[in-house]
């Protein structure tokens, strides 16, 4: 039994700790919750409730039923790696699942308790029992583990970390913030941090068929860059630069989603990715770069975000 002395001490420690914690929490309340702030929150809620909510739709018209439950079409050069591995893993695991479920239901039926049926006294140590078990387990190892590890190594070396180099690479700096996407292009001089840098918000313009190299850093909280048509996702982190690349082989307008919980309006944090023909893109960058230079304002600090580009 614990001594009374020790118990008194423990009680005191717990009391102090709880007091410190709760007291501290109270201090941390930034704007003391006045009736006014509570009223503001209620007002906001009423506004939110009265706004029009985006509505879902029925199944895609004119498309096979299963297309509803596939990701958007892959439009990148390397995204097939992800599609292939997903389908491979799905089919093989489905095969094992069918074996497993069949065994479960068949055994449940065949070995159900009934008059005249007795359980066999065996502990699974016989040669053939062991053989079946180890064969199946080895099959899992070879057909799933080895293939998945091999694919991951290969894709990591050949795609994810194999950054494109050369003049055709389009460099974009991305800085998400609550709840918007900032994009920055080097402009005509090819250097970041100069007067002709192009800034866009919530619209990322990209040329078709050229590798896009992205460096990204979050302004406030962690966000996630999720671009389904390129099968690409990367976190945006405050304080750390993340790097990745992809390309897109079809012109059009696509959606960029924030994949990481980033606050109340996380669900509205989307941007458009406008993929343009290469000539159109070149024309746009030239014009936008000139416009940036003409309107450059050194006092406008909020547009001069960025960091030293390096791979």
């Amino acid at each position: 039994m614990m001594s009374h002395h020790l118990r008194r001490k423990l009680r005191l420690t717990w009391g102090l700790a709880a007091g410190l914690a709760l007291g501290g929490a109270w201090i941390s309340l930034p704007e003391k919750a006045t009736a006014q702030t509570v009223e503001t929150i209620h007002q906001q809620r009423q506004d939110q409730a009265s706004q029009v909510h985006a509505q879902g739709s029925g199944h895609l018209p004119g498309k096979p039923f299963l297309d509803n439950y596939k990701p958007p079409q892959d439009l990148s050069t390397e995204g097939h790696r992800i599609n292939w591995l997903f389908e491979y893993t799905s089919w093989v695991t489905f095969g094992f699942f069918v074996v497993m479920a069949t065994a479960l239901f068949y055994f449940a039926y065949a070995f159900r308790a009934r008059p005249g049926h007795k359980a066999e006294y065996s502990k699974g140590k016989s040669f053939w029992e062991q053989t079946v078990k180890w064969t199946l387990d080895a099959a899992v190892f070879i057909s799933l583990d080895l293939v998945l590890i091999w694919a991951t190594y290969k894709d990591t070396a050949e795609y994810f970390w194999n950054y494109p180099k050369g003049p055709e690479v389009v460099k974009v700096m991305v800085m998400p913030q609550q709840w918007a996407w900032n994009f920055k292009y080097a402009g005509a001089d090819g250097e970041f941090g100069t007067e002709d840098d192009i800034n866009t918000i919530n619209e990322m313009r990209l040329p078709k068929g050229r590798p896009i190299m992205i460096q990204m850093k979050a302004k406030d909280v962690i966000h996630g860059f999720l671009f389904m048509e390129a099968r690409m996702q990367m976190d945006a982190i405050p304080g750390n630069i993340t790097k990745f690349w992809f390309d897109i082989n079809k012109a059009g307008e696509f959606e960029l989603a924030c994949a990481h919980m980033c606050g109340t309006y996380h669900y509205k944090m989307k941007a458009f990715i406008r993929v343009m023909e290469q000539e159109d893109y070149a024309k746009w960058t030239t014009e936008a770069s000139e416009w940036s230079k003409a309107t450059f304002d050194p006092e406008e600090k909020s547009a001069q975000w960025g960091w030293k580009w390096g791979i």
Partner: peptide, 8 residues
């Protein structure tokens, strides 16, 4: 568990 599919 595999990086390739995890990315998506």
């Amino acid at each position: 568990g595999a990086v390739t599919t995890n990315v998506m």
